[in-house]
Write a protein that binds this DNA or RNA. Sequence first.
DNA 1: TATCATTCTCGTACACAGTACGAGAATAGG
DNA 2: CCTATTCTCGTACTGTGTACGAGAATGATA
Lengths: 242, 242
Amino acid sequence: MTGGGDGGVGSGITGVDPQELWLRPAGPRRGRKPAFSREAITAAAVALADAEGLDAVTMRRVASQVGAGAMSLYSYAPDKETLLELMVDHVSGEPPLTTPLTGDWRTDLKAIACLQRALMLRHPWLPAALATRRTSGPNTLAFLERALAALRPTGLDGAAKLEVFAQLTGFVAGHVAHEIAQAAAARSPDRVAAEARYLAAVAADGHHPELAEALSAPGRPLDPKATFTRFLNRLIDGLDTG
Amino acid sequence: MTGGGDGGVGSGITGVDPQELWLRPAGPRRGRKPAFSREAITAAAVALADAEGLDAVTMRRVASQVGAGAMSLYSYAPDKETLLELMVDHVSGEPPLTTPLTGDWRTDLKAIACLQRALMLRHPWLPAALATRRTSGPNTLAFLERALAALRPTGLDGAAKLEVFAQLTGFVAGHVAHEIAQAAAARSPDRVAAEARYLAAVAADGHHPELAEALSAPGRPLDPKATFTRFLNRLIDGLDTG
DNA sequence: TATCATTCTCGTACACAGTACGAGAATAGG
DNA sequence: CCTATTCTCGTACTGTGTACGAGAATGATA
């Protein structure tokens, strides 16, 4: 096979198993040396998404950000989907998982949820990225491991613990997505005013009495953090060991 | 203005307010008659998404499905984003909202959640579509109106009721997305086996004892419907009027 | 009826996406 | 040195959303 690059910095591009991506700590040491690194590429993609949103993450832009040609990225990830998975796992490594667990699973679970929320607020594209994708990189798995450890005192069986964690993550993602949307809306008052005007018009037709009343209520600020913890407490306190 | 079509079957394309879309029951009655209808186009897009997923919904494919040229769609919706909103609102009109409320807000809320779940199972693209979008079409608002009515006995104020509904919808979307992903995974056993093999390998390294144990547990089927109602009950019963 | 503004239809075209292909450069083992 | 291997990246193809604008159909007006 002369010319033609289907290799991939030991990325396991050709693997039958998609998970093979996460294995292979270092590929063989022959041939030309890699000019970049999966780490750097992923970091650049994350920075781009942080700054301009997920849609800004295109192969060409990531490549130019890192000083590479667009096609060079394919030596480090088989396709864009994989790059997104790398991004998710990358940021999942940010939160420090060093604090010891308290042993009270509700407390520990809440702490984990707060870590997740902070992470998603720092990377607003995360909820959207998680909605579609299922990632099993090392950092993601470390997070999962931590959650399972926190749930140990519940005595739930494996599948149930996994369910609870998935549910919790989904909840946090949903809430933060909502938070972000509201924050973004607050930065464009025109939209808000237009929406309010429209809803008022709908409510005025008499067919939506409840909506009319809900909108006429005094609009207090409604602190997102407080709302989050309130719902979180309700959700977690509502869980039982049965 | 001769030639050039920035009109739109009374769709309010030029509107400053995005919501203007939902107003305008019928546009002016001058000029050439529309050959299609927003309804038909939306229905075609929904059918396409149902059959082949959200990614299959491209302007060209929707157009050809309905027998139109691609660009004709822009007379009925200003852009693809709007078409997606139309799709969401379209399917939101499916569930019958005629059953009277019981007066017990927990029961009523659970019924609403079940309606939502059924809807999302019938249209598997809905969770993903809802994750990004905020829609305020008539059917969506009817749904919201119903939820607010159900929440009336709680005595919560408007903003709080809206929060609860958003949270509930997010929960259902998250759960159904998970359900769908699992069902899809079950249809491709290769992936599952590969993932299982990979996770087993990770668990075997000794750094993930909890994961190892969770995976070694006996794998029972875990009925999705039952899991859904279980979590739903916990979430709703956990809510209080305070 | 003839005119005309209006409204819709849709072929063409453009910018940009992901990425297949493959030639050339760099490296390590023989 | 040679040669197999690995990475780099220009070119090019397909497919996307959609701007543009010419042409067809329609209702109002004279």
